[in-house]
Design a protein around this nucleic acid. Structure first.
Length: 789
RNA sequence: GGGCGAGUGGCGGAAUUGGUAUACGCGCAUGGCUUAGGACCAUGUUCCGAAAGGAUUGAGGGUUCGAGUCCCUCCUCGCCCACCA
C-alpha cells in the first residue's frame, strides 16, 4: 500500500483526540516532567517554518519522557497583550481583542497540522481576565512589599509608539520595536525594584543548567561592579561632588573631575562659571544628541571646562579643574567621575585633547596603564599593591565601598490601551490606594479609540465612567490609574498558570505547584535577556512570599537556533522569502517536516531552510513505511547489535537535545534493514518506538498494522543491552608510526599477540616488522594497533 | 574596545571526548527502469593522481606511539555587550 501521509496524519490525530492521550495528570506514583516552550505572540502574519522548530523539540522530548514513564505537562498558550497586537489592530481597524482571537485561531490551525502533543485543555492567554487577575495580584503584592513605587524620573519615551519604555526595550538608544530614537520624558511612572534581586539573580545562575552564553548575557545585563563612592569638596562651597569609581586605588592620580551634562549640579555651577554661556551652549547641544549620536562620534571626546570653579582631590589636597563632557553617562554611577588619565584610556584621550596634567600612580612603562601593580606617588600608600590598597584608600578620604549595577529598576507603566490595567486608585485624601484583592480583576474597559494619545496618558484616561470611582479607603472620589502594564508582565509567570489553569481562587495551588515545579526543560530563542530576567525576578519574589517552592523557575534551558530563508536572509514578508509550514506539511507530510527540522543541524545552530534537503527526510519516512513489507516473525539476528546501539544512541541523543544525530542513527539502521531485506516483528516495534517522538503519525499507523496494542505513544520506551551491542568481530586499524597501513578483523577482546600476528598478513606491516623488532607496540583493543619501528 | 563561541568536502554537518577524519543527508556523476521524469532503484563521490601512492580538519609551531580534539602564536567569521568609570 502506497504511503498516503494525509490519511495517516488525519487518522492518527483523530485517534489521539478521541482517547485524550495527552492530558497532563498529577500522578503521585510517577516522576514528572514539565516541558515548556516560550509561548508565542500570535501575530497577524501567522507561522513560518522557523517557529515550530522549538515546538518540535519539546514535542519530541515530552513524547520521549511519557514513554519513559513520566507524567508529562506540555502545555501551550498565548502571550497576547502588548504593542504588536495593538498595532496590528490599529492598522486593520479591528479591536485588539478580535485581532488576537483571529490570530490565535490561525496559529492553532497551523500548529494542529504538525501533530503536537499539547494538552489543549490547559490553554491560557494573558489577555483573559481570569488570567490577568493574577498578574494584577502579583503587582499588588509587590506594592505591599515595597517593590513597586511611583517615580517621576525622566524615562525613555518612544515618540512613534507613544509610550514609555524600560531600558530592556531599547536597541541601543532606539525603540527596539520601531527603531525610532527614544527621548527622555518626565512622566509619573510605576517602577519595580528589580535591582533588589540583582545579587540573587546573579548568584543563582550558577545553580542552573543553562547554556553558558545565556548565563553570560544575564551577567552582562545585570552588570554588577564593585567600587567606591568618593567626595571631592568644591572650593569655596560647603558641598562635595560625589564620584563613583572602580579604581579608588588610583585616587592620587585623579587630576580633574568630569560631570555628565545632565548632572544635577551642572546648572548651579554653570551660573557661577566665568564661561557660563559656553557651558550652556555645550549642555544644550548634548541634550539634543541621542546617546547613539554621542557614541557615533567615536572615541573623539568633547567637553567644556567650568572655568573659575575648582574641586579638591581629597587625597592629595590639590585643587583640580572640573569639566562637563558627554562621555560621562548620567545614568550610571553618580553621573560624575574622577579622571585618572594615566590609568584610564577614556580619561587619557580627553586629557590629551585638553592638554591636562597626568600623574602615574602605578608603576609601569606605559603612558596609560590600566593594569595592576605597585603604587607610586601615592602618599602613605606608596609601595603597596594597588588591589589590596583599594579599601584603605577609600576609607582614608571618608569614602565608602558601593556596588553598582547596569540593571535599572523596571519602568512598568505603558501609556497604551492593550495591556493589564495597573490596579491602583489615586485619591486626593489617601494618595495611592491599592484596589482591594477581592475587587480584582480590574478589567480593561471598552473604548472608542484605542490608538495611543501621545499626551503621556493612555487611552483609558478618556473614559470618564471608568476613571472616576470611589476610594476604597475613605469612600471619597478617586481616580483609577490609567497606565497599563508592559508586554513582559503576563509572560513573567505564565508557566505557573499552566500548572493549575482552572484555579480562580489562588495564583496556583500549592499541591499543583509542588508536583510540577520547576519547569524541567524550557525551550526558546531570543528573549535571552529580558524575558528570563523578568521571569526570574517575579519568581524569586513569589518564592519570598511563599507562593512557589523553588527559587528558580527554569531548571534547564535549551536555546534554539533560528531557521533562515533559503537565500540566507531572515524570513520576512518584506523579502518575500517566507515558507509556510502548511504548504510543507501538505507537500511532504508532517512527519517528514518534523524530522527534517530536527535533522537540519545541531539544535542550537542557525541554519538556512532547504527545500532540496527536506526531500531526503521525506524519502526516509516513506522508506520506513515500506519497511512493513520486510517484517518477518522471528528476529533477524544480524540486526541485533545495531538495533541495541540505535536504542542507546537515540535515547541519549534525545535527552541531550542532539536530535540531528539521533535521526542519522535511525537512518543508518534503516539502511541496514534494507540491505538485509528482513526485520523481525519485535525489532520493527522497537525501531518504530524510537522514531515515534519524531514521526508520531506514520509510526502510529505502522504500530497498528503490525498489530501492536494501544497507542505507540503510550508504549514503554525500549531498553538496550550493552553486551548485545558488541559484535563478534571488529575492524581494527593498523598503523606504523601513527600512519594507517591497513586493517584486520578480529575478536574485540583479542590479545596483543593475536593482533600482531593478524597484522602480519598485511604486506606493508610484514615488511616493516621483518626489518627489525618494533620499538614499541600500542594496542587498544577494538580501536587501534600502532607499531613504532 | 570587552565577553562568549566557532572555523572539517560543492552544501548542512558527524567523529565513541586523545585512537580508522569526512558518518548521515543534500547535491553531483554514471548506469538501470521508463513515452518522459525534477519519481524510483543501483553504484560512485574529501583533494591530487591513469594507478601505485601521497596530501588533508583556517595558518604556523608544540606535547604525544597517535591530535579535528590538548597547549602556544596568528588569521577569519558569528553572537552578545559596548565611552558602564
Amino acid at each position: 500500500m502506497a504511503y498516503d501521509h494525509r490519511k495517516i496524519e488525519e487518522d492518527a490525530q483523530k485517534k489521539w483526540e478521541a482517547t485524550k492521550l495527552y492530558r497532563a495528570q498529577e500522578d503521585k506514583k510517577k516522576p514528572k516532567k514539565y516541558v515548556l516552550d516560550m509561548f508565542p505572540y500570535p501575530s497577524g502574519e501567522g507561522l513560518h517554518v522557523g517557529h515550530p522548530k522549538g515546538y518540535i523539540a519539546t514535542d519530541i522530548y515530552s513524547r520521549f519522557s511519557r514513554m519513559r514513564g513520566y507524567s508529562v505537562l506540555h502545555p501551550m498558550g498565548w502571550d497576547a497583550f502588548g504593542l504588536p497586537a495593538e498595532n496590528f489592530a490599529i492598522k486593520h481597524k479591528v479591536h485588539p481583542r478580535e485581532a488576537v482571537k483571529r490570530n490565535i485561531a490561525n496559529f492553532k490551525a497551523q500548529l494542529a497540522h504538525i501533530g503536537f502533543d499539547y494538552d489543549w485543555s490547559r490553554e491560557i492567554q494573558t489577555t483573559d481576565p481570569r488570567y490577568y487577575h493574577w498578574t494584577q495580584w502579583i503587582f499588588l503584592k509587590m506594592l505591599e512589599h515595597g517593590l513597586a513605587f511611583q517615580s517621576d524620573e525622566p524615562i525613555n519615551w518612544c515618540p512613534s509608539c507613544k509610550t514609555g519604555l524600560a531600558n530592556e526595550d531599547l536597541d541601543g538608544t532606539a525603540c527596539e520595536r520601531c527603531g525610532t530614537p527614544v527621548e527622555k520624558k518626565k512622566l509619573p511612572q510605576w517602577v519595580l525594584k528589580i535591582t533588589d534581586y540583582a545579587d540573587r539573580m546573579l548568584a543563582d545562575l550558577d545553580t542552573l543548567d543553562w547554556p553558558e552564553h545565556i548565563k553570560e548575557a544575564q551577567r552582562n545585563w545585570i552588570g554588577r561592579s564593585e567600587g567606591a563612592e568618593l567626595g571631592f569638596p568644591l572650593v569655596g562651597r560647603d558641598e562635595k561632588i560625589m564620584v563613583f569609581t572602580t579604581r579608588p586605588d588610583t585616587l592620587y592620580g585623579a587630576t580633574y573631575l568630569v560631570l555628565a551634562p545632565e548632572h544635577p549640579l551642572v546648572s548651579t555651577l554653570t551660573a557661577e562659571a566665568r564661561n557660563a554661556k559656553e557651558v550652556r551652549t555645550y549642555v544644550a547641544a548634548a541634550a539634543k544628541k541621542t546617546e547613539v549620536e554621542r557614541g557615533a562620534e567615536g572615541k573623539e571626546k568633547t567637553g567644556v571646562r567650568l572655568e573659575s570653579i575648582m574641586a579638591v582631590n581629597p587625597a592629595t589636597k590639590e585643587e583640580v579643574p572640573i569639566f562637563v563632557a558627554d562621555y560621562v553617562l548620567s545614568s550610571y554611577g553618580t553621573g560624575a567621575i574622577m579622571a585618572v588619565p594615566a590609568h584610564d584610556e577614556r580619561d587619557f584621550d580627553f586629557a590629551q585633547k585638553f592638554n591636562l596634567p597626568m600623574r602615574q600612580v602605578i608603576q609601569s612603562g606605559e603612558d596609560c596603564y590600566t593594569g595592576s601593580g605597585r603604587l607610586i606617588h601615592s602618599g602613605a600608600f606608596t609601595g603597596q599593591d594597588n588591589e589590596t590598597a583599594k579599601l584603605a584608600i577609600t576609607e582614608s578620604v571618608g569614602g565608602r565601598k558601593v556596588v553598582r549595577y547596569k540593571l535599572h529598576d523596571w519602568v512598568f507603566s505603558r501609556q497604551r490601551y492593550w495591556g493589564e490595567p495597573i490596579p491602583v486608585i489615586h485619591c486626593a485624601q489617601c494618595g495611592v490606594v491599592p484596589v482591594p484583592y477581592e475587587d480584582l480583576p480590574v478589567t480593561l474597559p471598552e473604548v472608542d479609540h484605542y490608538e495611543p494619545t501621545g499626551t503621556g496618558e493612555s487611552p483609558l484616561a478618556a473614559i470618564d465612567s471608568w476613571v472616576h470611582t470611589t476610594c476604597p479607603k475613605c469612600g471619597g472620589a478617586g481616580k483609577r490609574e490609567t497606565n497599563t502594564m508592559p508586554q513582559w508582565a503576563g509572560s513573567s509567570w505564565y508557566y505557573l498558570r499552566f500548572m493549575d489553569p482552572e484555579n480562580d481562587h489562588e495564583l496556583v495551588s500549592s499541591a499543583a505547584e509542588k508536583y510540577w515545579a520547576p519547569v524541567d526543560v524550557y525551550v526558546g530563542g531570543d528573549h535571552a535577556v529580558r524575558h528570563l530576567i523578568y521571569a526570574r525576578f517575579w519568581h524569586k519574589f513569589l518564592y519570598d512570599i511563599g507562593v512557589v517552592s523553588t527559587s528558580e523557575p527554569f531548571a534547564r534551558l535549551e536555546f534554539l537556533g533560528f531557521i533562515l530563508a533559503e537565500d540566507g536572509r531572515k524570513m520576512s514578508k518584506r523579502f518575500g522569502n517566507v515558507i509556510n509550514p502548511d504548504e510543507v506539511v501538505a507537500a511532504y507530510g508532517a512527519d517528514a517536516f518534523r524530522t527534517y527540522e530536527m535533522f537540519m543541524g545541531p539544535f542550537e545552530n542557525t541554519v538556512a531552510w532547504s527545500t532540496d534537503s527536506i526531500a531526503g527526510t521525506a524519502r526516509f519516512i516513506e522508506r520506513v513505511w515500506n519497511m512493513q513489507e520486510k517484517v518477518i516473525d522471528e528476529a533477524h539476528a544480524a540486526l541485533e547489535p545495531l538495533l541495541h546501539k540505535t536504542i542507546k544512541k537515540v535515547s541519549s541523543d534525545i535527552e541531550a537535545f542532539k536530535f540531528n544525530t539521533a535521526v542519522s542513527q535511525m537512518m543508518i539502521f534503516l539502511n541496514a534493514v534494507e540491505k538485509e531485506s528482513a526485520i523481525g516483528k519485535r525489532q520493527m516495534k522497537i525501531f518504530l518506538q524510537l522514531l515515534a517522538p519524531f514521526a508520531p503519525h506514520v509510526t502510529e499507523a505502522l504500530w497498528e498494522r503490525i498489530e501492536a496494542e494501544g497507542s505507540i505513544h503510550l508504549s514503554k520506551w525500549p531498553t538496550y543491552d550493552e553486551s548485545l551491542i558488541a559484535t563478534q568481530t571488529v575492524t581494527l586499524a593498523v598503523q606504523i608510526n601513527g600512519k594507517r597501513r591497513g586493517e584486520v578483523r578480529l575478536a574485540p577482546d583479542a590479545s596483543k599477540d593475536d593482533a600482531l600476528a593478524a597484522a602480519r598478513a598485511i604486506p606493508a606491516i610484514n615488511n616493516a616488522l621483518s626489518a627489525g623488532a618494533p620499538t614499541r607496540v600500542i594496542y587498544v583493543p577494538g580501536r587501534i594497533l600502532n607499531i613504532v619501528v
